[in-house]
Amino acid sequence: MKRIWFNRWFSVAYHYMNMIRNNPYGERFELYGTHPNIQHMSLQACDHAETEPVLEGFEYVEFCLSFCKRHRIDVFIPRLKMLEIAKYVDLFDQIGTKVMLCRDTELMENLMEKDLFYESVRGKQIVEIPEYYVVNTAVAFKEAYESLTSKGLKVCFKPTNAEGGMGFRIIVEEQNRLEELYGWVNLNITFEQAYEAFSSQETFEDIMVMELLEGNEYSIDCLASADGELQAAIPRRKEAGRLYLLEDVPELLEISRRFAAEYRIPYVYNIQVKYNNGIPKLLEINPRMSGGLYITCLSGVNIPYLAVKAVLGEAVAIPVPQLGITASYVEQPIVLMTSEAAQPELEKSI
């Protein structure tokens, strides 16, 4: 029985562990998980869970190596500190643990810093990139904003190294603050508000000031072999509310093939694009399982399990994805633990 470890992950790792466990071949796995919060949702699907220490740099890599040795881990699926782990992946090879990540550390560094990756894509005829500027002063922010708006573009900004939607804001001409107090929390901010905040410091961490893409947004979940050969690419369109559409979009499949041919990212990754005026433009690439991958797997392609098989070097037939599926999700209550006081009542109810 193979042992698989997820280090500190998002809550959706709960789904990915269960997908590996409930694979179509009935293959058995032993699942390990760690997180600083032992009650974190991602750990509820584990066979074994431990509290993860908060460490930086090589100290964290040493913790990972020790964990893999102690539990004889066969496959390590990291999310936290992927770049640091990639730098020392040979040490995991030496102890017999296979790691599900991209070993190309230069590429990983570019993927972590969105502006670096944009520049690596520019001119390669893979996909269009949005117009943008990288700034770290209020003066440069003002100049970038004025340059973009002079071209008739709406503007947004986000940190160059943010994960997901962290730090993303849309610049609007005006706000009705009272209306917003009574409405939903949103990402809007006026130029004046942003400029005032940025002016509070002489310099700040790099942000990308860029054109706002207003069309359909897609996540393309990709499955690849160990050498980066694309095996499946499934576009998932974000709709209103919690709706998603698994859609056959030849243009996006071709973009996925071009990315795979150029960058050879192994195992699992996610390409995010958004349309503007009918043109798909790159948002980012995540070299890991995406937050919405469990929706994509409704296509009939169990990507977490197939990626594990790829890491282990074991061939498995890749099913043809079923597209044209509209999907959503709902919350489901899960009991994390039962106090001793409640135990007798629980036994009576049974």
Rank of each mutant, 00 (worst) to 15 (best):
L187S: 14
S225G: 14
L252M: 12
L213F: 02
R257Q: 13
A232C: 14
L252W: 07
E202A: 06
E214C: 03
Q231W: 10
L253S: 02
E179A: 11
P235F: 09
S225W: 11
Q231N: 08
G241F: 04
E196M: 00
E179N: 08
A260S: 15
E192G: 02
A233C: 11
D206P: 13
E251H: 06
L223Y: 03
R257E: 11
I207A: 02
F204N: 02
E239A: 04
E192R: 10
Y182R: 03
G241K: 13
L223D: 01
Y182E: 07
G183T: 09
T190N: 10
I189V: 15
S200W: 11
S200N: 11
N186A: 04
L245E: 10
W184I: 10
A233N: 00
E196N: 00
A232H: 12
E180D: 08
L245V: 02
N186Q: 09
N216C: 12
L252I: 07
G228M: 12
G228T: 07
L213Y: 03
E196I: 03
P266A: 07
S199Q: 08
D248H: 13
A226E: 13
Y267M: 01
N188F: 08
G241N: 14
I265T: 06
G183V: 03
E247M: 04
R258Y: 08
S225T: 15
L252F: 15
D206T: 00
A233G: 10
A226G: 02
A197S: 06
Y195L: 14
L212W: 15
I265S: 00
L243E: 11
L181D: 07
F259P: 06
E202P: 02
E247L: 12
L181C: 09
E247F: 04
L246E: 03
I265G: 09
P235G: 05
E217Q: 13
E262V: 12
E247Q: 05
F204D: 05
Y263V: 15
K238G: 08
F198Q: 05
E196V: 12
A194R: 10
K238P: 00
Y267T: 11
T203L: 02
Y182P: 05
N186I: 04
N186F: 04
R236T: 06
S200C: 11
Y218E: 04
E247I: 09
Y218H: 07
E229G: 14
A232D: 11
A240P: 06
E202W: 05
Y195G: 03
L223G: 13
Y218V: 05
M210Y: 02
W184A: 03
A226Y: 00
A232F: 08
A261E: 14
E229H: 07
S199K: 08
P250F: 01
L253D: 07
E247D: 12
S199E: 07
M208Y: 06
R258K: 15
A240E: 14
E262H: 15
